[in-house]
Nucleic acid binder design. Structure first.
Length: 166
DNA sequence: CCCTAGCGGTGCT
DNA sequence: AGCACCGCTAGGG
């Protein structure tokens, strides 16, 4: 049973889904954000509202190029061991810095798994919060982004990272 | 520049 | 078990 709540921002409405363990998913604004308030109908529990306040603040701060501040607990239980290992590594890339997929692979002790690292990034349930946008292809190419390359570029720009070949 | 082989994890049959 | 995907990379034309 998940609770879904929206996060209005100047660049669109993000949606956050909470399990009983914490923030389980974060979605970028949909193209047609006409689906106004599709929030869960019942009033969320106190703890979820508390988490949501933190998520909301974190998202807005990140969009302004600031540190996220306090985060709600993250529920990453749906990932495999490998994926969680990757996501944990991503969480350590600080604002304004980037790593290549290969560097992340080496950092987790699986130097040949760079391709799988890419897949794990794509499976990241909480983009922005777990900053998969800071992982670029080797040589400074942008690489991919499941939620849309434009978002990745925008986030990198916000964080002052220069992109190659553009 | 483009092309290719090789790579590891995951999800489907 | 097999297979087809992939947010990749390094090496060779």
């Amino acid at each position: 049973m998940e609770t879904t709540l929206s996060i209005p921002t100047p660049v669109g409405v993000f949606r956050a889904a909470y399990s009983d363990r914490g923030l389980a998913r974060l979605q970028f604004p949909h193209r047609d954000s006409q689906e106004a308030n599709q929030d869960s109908r019942n009033r969320p529990h106190r703890v979820v509202r508390q988490w949501h306040r933190l998520t909301q603040a974190a998202v807005r701060r990140i969009l302004r190029g600031k540190e996220p501040g306090n985060l709600p607990p993250l529920d990453l239980s749906r990932g495999t061991d490998f994926q969680r290992t990757v996501w944990t590594a991503l969480a350590r890339i600080s604002l304004g810095r980037t790593r290549s997929y290969g560097e992340v692979a080496r950092a987790i002790g699986r130097p040949r798994a760079f391709r799988a690292v890419g897949s794990a990034c794509g499976a990241n349930p909480v983009p922005l919060i777990v900053p998969c946008h800071r992982v670029l292809a080797a040589g400074g190419q942008v690489g991919g982004f499941s939620s849309g390359l434009e978002w990745k570029k925008r986030l990198l720009h916000i964080e002052g990272v220069a992109i190659k070949s553009c």
